[in-house]
């Protein structure tokens, strides 16, 4: 166990160093959430008049969604890092050392999580500066970020697995383009469920992105529904564990294809 921890520690430290050497990605990927927050937020300011949003500020309504959606968008690119590791030969070198396979994947997860946290904090600060309110204060914000990280782990691990299996940038780009917008719009990120067409409302209930949005929105409200927060959080956690396990399994397929 302690060997797994030290392996994970060294591998994570390495990934973070690489990440910090190119902070530009972290900044570029913040452009999108800022657009959603300010342009979209202003454009649709009046939709709250339709009712059912539980707030009279559309900005307040979309902040958790934008944070969570950003986590999704950011983590979906994790596979690019894995791909780079395979193509530059570093992954193969690590795989013939005694380092635990799980440590290699854990390092990716932690690196992505650190990125998610930094970005989420920035988005929350920007929203706060623009006048958004956070009724339950810091604990609510902390939960929001935790849920964003969990969602990120799910899609980050998926992306890592894909990166290792397909070994083509185009596949990752294709899958991300295919997934990001449907996942976003088939959820309550921008619109309450009652105002969605029936089929969309139904589908959205199975969307992990929606679980994270619903749970974090509730956690941020003045009167959180803890049952909802815990159940959705639990589902996310379970799915995250499953996806990490699956991504570690892909080393086996990799071993056959390499």
């Amino acid at each position: 166990m302690s060997a797994l921890l030290t392996d994970t520690w060294w591998m994570t430290a390495r990934r973070l160093k690489i990440g910090m050497a190119q902070p530009v990605f972290l900044v570029i990927s913040l452009i999108q959430p800022v657009i959603w927050l300010f342009l979209f937020g202003n454009l649709f300011e009046r939709v709250v008049d339709l009712g059912g949003f539980g707030t009279d500020s559309y900005l307040d309504y979309i902040v958790p969604g934008v944070v969570v959606m950003n986590a999704l968008a950011w983590n979906m690119w994790a596979g690019m890092g894995t791909l780079e590791e395979t193509s530059q030969g570093t992954l193969n070198r690590f795989l013939v050392t005694p380092v635990r396979r799980s440590a290699i994947m854990n390092a990716n997860v932690f690196e992505q999580a650190v990125g998610t946290i930094v970005q989420s904090v920035v988005i929350v600060l920007l929203a706060w500066w623009a006048g958004a309110t956070f009724d339950s204060g810091l604990p609510g914000v902390a939960l929001l970020i935790l849920l964003a990280v969990l969602l990120g782990v799910i899609f980050g691990s998926m992306s890592n697995a894909i990166g290792m299996l397909v070994r083509q940038r185009e596949s990752i780009i294709g899958i991300n383009t295919l997934l990001l917008l449907p996942l976003t719009f088939l959820s309550t990120v921008f619109m309450v469920r009652d105002l969605m067409p029936d089929w969309m409302a139904t589908v959205s209930r199975f969307n992990p992105l929606d679980w994270a949005v619903v749970a974090s929105r509730s956690a941020l409200s003045a009167t959180p529904d803890w049952g909802l927060v815990l159940s959705r959080g639990g589902w996310l956690l379970a799915l995250a564990v499953l996806m990490v396990a699956l991504s570690i399994r892909t080393f086996r397929s990799y071993q056959k294809a390499v």
Binding site: T6, I18, A21, Q88, T90, R93, T97
Partner: peptide
């Protein structure tokens, strides 16, 4: 080549050693 191109030679060697405990 399999070294980490953005790390230094020394860092590459150090990490390699760590992975062997």
């Amino acid at each position: 080549s399999s070294a980490d191109p953005v790390a230094t030679g020394r860092d590459n060697l150090a990490l390699q050693g760590r992975l062997y405990g």
